[in-house]
Each structure stands twice: as structure tokens, then as C-alpha cells.
Design a protein around this nucleic acid. Structure first.
Lengths: 181, 181
DNA sequence: ACCAAACTAGACCGATCGGTCTACTTTGTT
DNA sequence: AACAAAGTAGACCGATCGGTCTAGTTTGGT
């Protein structure tokens, strides 16, 4: 997971994975049919953990829906800073790299991103019902907007080696889009 | 440029480039010192063309500043659709893939993204001066927000194989952030 | 104690990677 | 016409890629 997240899929050789995990090749191919299948398993593992944490944070009853969203995104910013902007979002990274080359992985990444968007949308709808947000916008569209913006901000932060893009994204988002009606 | 944009840098072997260009290896290495140097030249070529077009579109005197920005982004959406969402933004793609692996290319991509952000910022400032936009926001921050959002929307569109993320991004952007004061 | 299944271990494979090398052809200058 | 420089052509190089194969070891059931 770490190697894929930092170097990407193609740039990470199996030998590097095996060395880091201290696992011989025979064992690897006993459990995984191919690098692609292993990649899928890594994605699955990451996605599972991530979605679980997302569900916890977005359903925290001590916060308003909008503050849950803000808290989640700010945690992401902190993590990015913690890794000196070298590690962004594994799903976005692999998506960018593999969307055109590997249909199987692309399809799975697509599903995962849609599930995230769905969670965002639910939280936005709650915010609308709580009167925190104008009900004029389609929650699903708004959720897609936030997801895209987030992925792009993380990408830009990696390129610029600075959390500034993420900070600017969050500041602008909550000052303009996610503002009380 | 086409191969890098569709397959990425690492997944594109030199042999593929040489075959497509019908150029023997000897000629290639007569003009380019390495694949990295070639990659830099490709980036340079793309960046030059792109920035030229950006300058034309963002200084069109027949449109208001905001409409120039909208026109530019909508042209991008049309191009994405034209390629069935297989080709996004070369700079963003390479940035995502190489930011952690190749400092030289990363640094150049960083510069290019900053130059784009600068162009956006100038246009936004014009819009503010023309009264099209609230002057309450820092143009540079707002420009970073748009650039991040755009890159993310294109990334998501590639993964989802649909222009919907880009359409949702633009709709939300011009309905909430880039709205008249 | 025995044995089959599960698993470990890494040498090895052909393909492909980026890059080098030498021999040859074309071009521009005088 | 002569010649040096520029450019062409692709065989070839070691390294590394993902993946295979065989031989050995550990494990769990009986």
C-alpha cells in the first residue's frame, strides 16, 4: 500500500514489494495470481479501511453534518502534511495512472469513488435538512464537486510539494459553496 | 505527447514512441540525452501550446472576464468528451505519476501549474474590477481553487469514463463560487 | 508416526526496459 | 570533387520486469 501510494503502480516492481515485506516470490504467487490481482487486493484493503473511517467520521452525532465533513477533510489535510505531500490519495493516484491501461482496476476504482461520493451526498443532504445548507443544490452533484475538488487539491499539493492548494481549496469551499443559506 | 497523455510516462516505452514516430533509436539519442530529457521536451512543447491558447482565450475582448474563463473550461470539457475521457490533462497526469519519483520533471510541472494559476488569477481580478465577482476573495486563492477543482474533475472523469464530474464541477462552480455579488 | 496439503524458497525464464555502439548515409562548405 | 559534420539505422548491452518451476519445509488431520 505504501509503495503503490508513493511510487505508483507501474513504478513499483514486485521485487520491491517482496523485499519490503520480506516475503519470497513463491509465497507471493501462492496467494496472488498476478500483480494485477495483488493490486486489486491492495485497493480492496485500503478501500475497506477508508470507508470504515469515513462512515465513523460522517456520522458523528456530536457534530453538525457540515462540521463532520469539514473535520474529515481537515484530517486529510493533516495526513498530507504529515507525509510532506508525498502521499496523496491511493485511489486517485491509481485511478489517474491506470484508468486508460487496466480496465479491471479502473472499474473497481470507479465503484469506490462512487461510494465515497454517495457518503458525501448523504452528509450534504443531512446538512440541508438541518438547515445548514441551501436545499437548492442536488446533493449528489455537490458531493461530486467536493470529491473532484479534493482529489485535484491533493494532486496539486503533491506537484507543488505544499499543502497550500489543499488549504486554499478548503477555505474557498467553506467560504462559498458550503455556506449557510 | 499522445502516448504520454494516454498511457502515462512509465507505461510508455521508448520503443513505442520510436515506432509511432517512425524514428530509429540512433536519431532519438542524437537529439535527446535520455528519456527524462525527452519527457521534459514533451512537457515544454505541450506547455508552450497550452499557455498560448490560454492567453488568447483569457484575453478575448469580446467577452467578459468571467465568460472567458467559462469558455476556456467548457472547451476543455469538449476536448475530454472528444477523446471519450481517455485523455485528461498531460501536466496533471504526469504530475500525479512523477511528483514523487522525478524531482526534475516535478519541478517543471510545478512551475507550469503556477503559471496557469497566475493566468486564472489575473482573469479573476479583471472580473472583480468589472464588478462581475465579489472582491472579497483573493484572486490567487480563488485561481488555485479552480485549478485544483479542474484537475480533480478531469481525473475523476477519466476514472469514471464520463464527463459528468466535469459537468457537475462547472455547473457548481459557476452557480456558487463564480457568481455575481 | 505418517502423509497429503499448505506453504516457503529462490533460481530461473523470456520479454522488455532505457541506453550504447559502430557502421553507414546524407548534407553543407569549400 | 573532397571532406568533415550531422544524422540515420538497428544490432546489441546489462538490468529489471512480471511470472514459472522445482525442490524443500512446515502444518494439521488421522
Amino acid at each position: 500500500m505504501q509503495l503503490f501510494a508513493t511510487q505508483g503502480y507501474n513504478a513499483t516492481g514486485l521485487d520491491a514489494v517482496l523485499k519490503q515485506a520480506a516475503v519470497p516470490k513463491g509465497s507471493f504467487y501462492h496467494f496472488f495470481g498476478s500483480k494485477e490481482e495483488f493490486g486489486l487486493a491492495v485497493i480492496e484493503e485500503f478501500s475497506g479501511r477508508f470507508l470504515a473511517r469515513l462512515d465513523v467520521l460522517l456520522s458523528d452525532p456530536t457534530l453538525t453534518p457540515l462540521d463532520r465533513l469539514r473535520g474529515f477533510l481537515e484530517r486529510g489535510e493533516a495526513q498530507l502534511a504529515q507525509h510532506q505531500c508525498t502521499v496523496g490519495c491511493l485511489i486517485g493516484d491509481l485511478g489517474q495512472e491506470l484508468a486508460a491501461n487496466n480496465e479491471r482496476l479502473r472499474a473497481r476504482l470507479d465503484e469506490i469513488m462512487r461510494s465515497w461520493r454517495g457518503r458525501f451526498a448523504a452528509c450534504i443532504q443531512e446538512a440541508q435538512q438541518a438547515g445548514e445548507l441551501s436545499a437548492a443544490f442536488d446533493p449528489e452533484v455537490m458531493a461530486g464537486f467536493i470529491l473532484s475538488g479534493w482529489e485535484g487539491a491533493v494532486l496539486t499539493a503533491k506537484v507543488m510539494k505544499s499543502t497550500q492548494p489543499v488549504r486554499d481549496f478548503l477555505a474557498t469551499l467553506f467560504a462559498t459553496v458550503l455556506t449557510k443559506p
